[in-house]
């Protein structure tokens, strides 16, 4: 969905786990940015229709990016900064192959 700019100042790598997959983020990334760059889309599925969803606003207003982070549900991925070893779970319906 998104790609890192080639000329960007290199920041330290931060390895996180999204649904069992290893995702390499950069220090200072929000979780939503890391997931968009890694192609972890959709973030969730609509509880009512099952339709796939991904971030809309990136400023904490829309709640479309909510995922489970280290066991805590309904965290807004755009408001969470990645830390090494962070474990992220999408709702079952949003995972690949679901």
């Amino acid at each position: 969905m998104f790609r890192r700019l080639a000329g960007a100042k290199a920041r330290a790598e931060v390895v996180i786990d999204v649904d069992g997959e290893r995702v390499v983020a950069r220090e200072g990334d929000t979780l939503a940015a890391a997931m968009l760059v890694a192609g972890c889309v959709p973030f969730r599925a609509s509880e009512r229709s099952g339709a796939p969803r991904a971030p809309l606003c990136m400023i904490g207003a829309c709640f479309e990016c909510r995922v489970e982070v280290d066991g805590a549900g309904s965290r807004r991925a755009c408001q969470v900064v990645v830390v090494p070893g962070m474990r992220v779970r999408r709702s079952r319906a949003a995972r690949p192959g679901a």
Partner: peptide, 15 residues
């Protein structure tokens, strides 16, 4: 604005 956030904080653009 969401794309602007991603550009300014994570140096990435939509592919």
């Amino acid at each position: 604005g969401a794309a602007q956030v991603l550009l300014e904080t994570s140096a990435c653009v939509p592919s």
